[in-house]
Design a protein around this nucleic acid. Structure first.
Lengths: 193, 193
DNA sequence: GTCTATAGAAGGATAGAC
DNA sequence: GTCTATCCTTCTATAGAC
């Protein structure tokens, strides 16, 4: 007969590791988070953590993987649209949703110096970045045209620690993020349904 | 008679330390930069670095100090203006100039997890943040009204590693930053002179 | 102001038992 | 899947000579 699944009293698998590592990475930065700290927070030893991943770098990549996959999916979906304007609108909507559903991962991705170095060493992990820029800025050869998008991208990656903001409902955040995005990317409000 | 000042062949003082530490902190993050790495880059030993500052934290604060002082000055200058609109315009102009003249410091201030923790432990170093928010958002009690400002602030703190952007002239950057700021903060273009 | 030398703690990572 | 025990490296920081 199958083992009775324990309700994650301590330790218990990759999911718990992902949750814990992500929380600490987002709060203290990757290099401000030791494997000891992760293990302590999980209630296990370092060796237990090393059972799931061989190196710290692998943990970081494992934690970021879902976001990178989703970003690729959003870009791909947007690129099926016909017309630049439609592509940009589709991308913006999908992108903002993704930022909301995966906030700490997104903050980690854009803010952490360790992650930035990691990505530049794995150019394949940066494809979403190039493709999203292509959608948003298009083939505009003027580098100055990229700046509003860079500001928007980076701006959504800020922690927004302000407790007043942290209390806001996701729907409110979505509306404000979309509004800022439309203003910066020169999109009109979409038609009301 | 005075000593002939050596032209900083190796080592040579706090200024060199400030430059070197800032460059490495901005590139690799505070916790990704060891005192050994700073010393190596300066061509001295760790002990020489410790002559100038007692701890690593003090180095970080020493490196950030000029920016924090300038931010306070910009806020104070803006607050002497009469009328909310005039205050916001003055602040935005001074703020963008400061970001341009102190870019790596600004990126470090807004992006580094170590710095963020440091600032929350020294609330006096966060006064510029509260005061600038007061100028930009005013007494608006709706936390959602803070979001565009947060995005703008955080967005200007992104590294903008893109080599195409790095090549841009400061005057071009200033214009684009100001334009984005005005759009997000609902300011009209200032009158042409 | 800079050096050598070193203390003492913490970091990432592995071996082998259970 | 988790443990104990351990290795080796790197880290911050200090003492004391020049």
């Amino acid at each position: 007969m199958t083992q009775v699944a324990r309700q994650r009293p301590r330790g218990a698998g990759k999911a718990h590791l992902h949750d814990t590592a992500l929380r600490l990475f987002a709060r203290d930065g990757v290099e401000g988070t030791s494997l000891q700290a992760i293990a302590d927070e999980m209630g296990v030893t370092k060796a237990a953590v090393y059972y799931h991943y061989k190196t710290k770098e692998d943990i970081v990549l494992g934690v970021l993987a879902p976001l990178l996959q989703d970003m690729t999916a959003v870009v791909t979906a947007a690129q099926t649209r016909r017309g630049q304007q439609a592509r940009r609108e589709a991308f913006l909507a999908g992108f903002v949703d993704l930022v909301l559903t995966s906030r700490s991962r997104f903050t980690m991705l854009l803010r952490d110096p360790y992650v930035l170095r990691l990505l530049t060493q794995h150019p394949d992990l940066m494809q979403w970045w190039l493709r999203s820029r292509e959608i948003v800025v298009g083939a505009n050869p003027d580098p100055a045209a990229h700046i509003p998008w860079m500001i928007f991208l980076g701006g959504l990656g800020t922690p927004m620690n302000d407790p007043a903001i942290a209390e806001l409902d996701d729907n409110v955040l979505r509306e404000r993020f979309l509004e800022v995005g439309r203003r910066l990317l020169n999109l009109r409000h979409p038609p009301r349904h």
